[in-house]
């Protein structure tokens, strides 16, 4: 298994979350998630300005194998989407933590971040799953 970036937070549903300096957050799916899905072929992202609720589906990613809901780990307003993914969904496969990010949002409050997992905690979950 590849090394998990230590500066990110994780969820049980295999998203990662990066808290930016200005308090906004960037969200993507983990390397483990992209590997389980195999080649991605289609991404449906939330729209700008959309208000998303924590742990509710706000988009879809589809691979050659299956469709999977994208869950926003945090409530907030969508402030950016990775439009490159529309034509190049494979960026999620090749660069899940960098070029393959999904969307950015402005959180309603920062309390929810406490619920997120550290790299170490997420690794433990992956180990129990496998």
């Amino acid at each position: 298994m590849s090394e998990l970036p230590e500066d990110l937070k994780y969820t049980k549903t295999h998203e990662w979350v990066r808290v930016e300096e200005d308090g906004t957050v960037t969200i993507g799916i983990t390397d483990h998630a992209q590997e389980a899905l195999d080649d991605l072929v289609f991404v449906e992202l939330p729209t700008l300005g959309q208000l998303v609720a924590a742990e509710e589906p706000c988009g879809v990613i589809e691979s050659v194998k299956a469709a999977a809901d994208i869950f926003s780990p945090i409530s907030g307003e969508i402030i950016a989407c990775n439009d490159k993914l529309v034509n190049e969904p494979e960026l999620i496969n090749s660069s899940p933590y960098e070029d393959g990010w999904l969307f950015k949002l402005k959180p309603d409050g920062d309390s929810q971040l406490i619920e997120l997992l550290t790299a170490e905690e997420y690794t433990e979950i992956l180990e129990t799953e496998s």
């Binding site: 195999d38 080649d39 072929v41 050659v64 494979e90 496969n93």
Partner: peptide, 8 residues
Amino acid sequence: PLHYGSQI
């Protein structure tokens, strides 16, 4: 084998 890296 399902694939050897990338199905596509």
